[in-house]
């Protein structure tokens, strides 16, 4: 295996665009074959992605910039090679994503010539919703869940890919790969269609839609091993470096810009940290880590004793909170 991504090594982490240039397609050097189980996961995901492109009138890929989205996008590029992606990407921006995520998003879209749509909930923005004064629950509800619904309705998308995995959380484990949503975007856990073989029932009534999760059967470890094997660019925030953080309610929150109000006694400190998941920076806890390469991350993961969602503030709101959010239309 060649060295991990130059592009995202911490030394050049702030300069994503030039770093991507360094990622010219390795082309000539053939990669070692994928392990049998990653090859099978890859093929199954490609099948799902092609099925959506073939059966939906107006599909879209929700691109959240994180590692799962990176893998999903890579699989989609494989599915339609040598043709272009037959659907656009959509990013629902809450205005509180890490700055490096936005830079990375735009660099990736430019590099692969992708059609990238972005949407910010205009009412939420006008009301000045933010994670600090409005609270994490309201911020997520308005900027993420409502914003997503608005975007799907605005462009009339009938099938939307998401990067969720069943291993992330208990209620996700029972979700279908093709998950039917009512015209009001609600998920009905009692009324799911059985999914037999790989014969996906894609039929929907007018106004209804389908959320489709091609990575359903991947684990966090699969995702990282695949990123390593396939040389997929990811946001540098996943790699450890010295970053300004404050400790708040047991989580390490990175001070990503001047909008973060510091509480009395809080002083940002430089600590060697990285992120296991990426979202809105005030809601995403960093972990202390010295993992600066993909191999380091995988080694850390294999020895790890905490799940990736631990850093997510919203999941802790209360028991079974994810299931409730999904019923309301959270992805």
């Amino acid at each position: 295996m060649s060295a991990p991504l130059q592009a995202v090594s911490p030394g050049v982490a702030q300069g994503v665009a030039p770093a991507l240039e360094g990622l010219a397609p390795s082309g000539a050097a053939p990669r070692p074959a994928l392990s049998p189980h990653l090859a099978r996961l890859e093929a199954e995901s490609i099948y799902i992605i092609r099925e959506v492109a073939a059966e939906f009138g107006n599909p879209v890929m929700l691109y959240s910039i994180g590692k799962d989205s990176a893998v999903m996008l890579h699989l989609a590029r494989k599915a339609f090679f040598p043709g272009p992606l037959p659907f656009p990407l959509l990013h629902v921006d809450t205005r509180w994503k890490f700055r490096e995520m936005i830079t990375f998003r735009d660099a990736i879209a430019a590099r692969y010539g992708l059609e990238l749509l972005t949407h910010v909930n205009p009412e939420g923005a006008a009301r000045g919703i933010d994670p600090f004064t409005s609270g994490s629950a309201l911020h997520t509800q308005v900027m993420k869940t409502e914003g997503l619904k608005q975007a799907l309705e605005k462009w009339k998308f009938d099938g939307a890919f998401g990067g969720a995995r069943r291993d992330e959380e208990k209620s996700r484990a029972k979700e279908r790969i093709f998950s039917h949503r009512t015209a009001a975007h609600a998920w009905e856990p009692r009324n799911q269609r059985p999914e037999l073989w790989s014969l996906f029932n894609t039929r929907i009534a007018r106004g209804e839609s389908m959320r489709v999760f091609p990575l359903s059967n991947w684990t966090e470890l699969d995702v990282w091993q695949y990123i390593l094997a396939e040389d997929i660019p990811v946001v540098p925030l996943y790699f450890a470096r010295e970053r300004p953080v404050v400790e708040r309610d047991g989580a390490l929150i990175m001070v990503d810009d001047g909008r973060m109000p510091l509480l009395p006694g809080e002083t940002p400190q430089m600590r060697l940290v990285r992120f296991r998941t990426l979202g809105c920076y005030p809601l995403t806890g960093a972990v202390e880590s010295s993992a600066t390469s993909l191999q380091d991350i995988i080694a850390e993961l294999m020895a790890s004793r905490a799940s990736e969602r631990q850093g997510r503030v919203i999941d802790h709101d209360d028991q079974a909170s994810m299931e409730r959010k999904k019923r309301e239309g959270y992805f």
Partner: peptide, 29 residues
């Protein structure tokens, strides 16, 4: 309780749907 997912069935104490779980050993996934 680790594998019973949805709220209602957690309270009923029974599994009512298909749930998928993932694990791996050094030999196989």
């Amino acid at each position: 309780l680790l594998v019973d997912g949805l709220e209602a069935e957690r309270e009923q104490g029974i599994t009512i749907d298909v749930a998928y779980r993932f694990f791996a050993t050094p030999r196989r996934s």
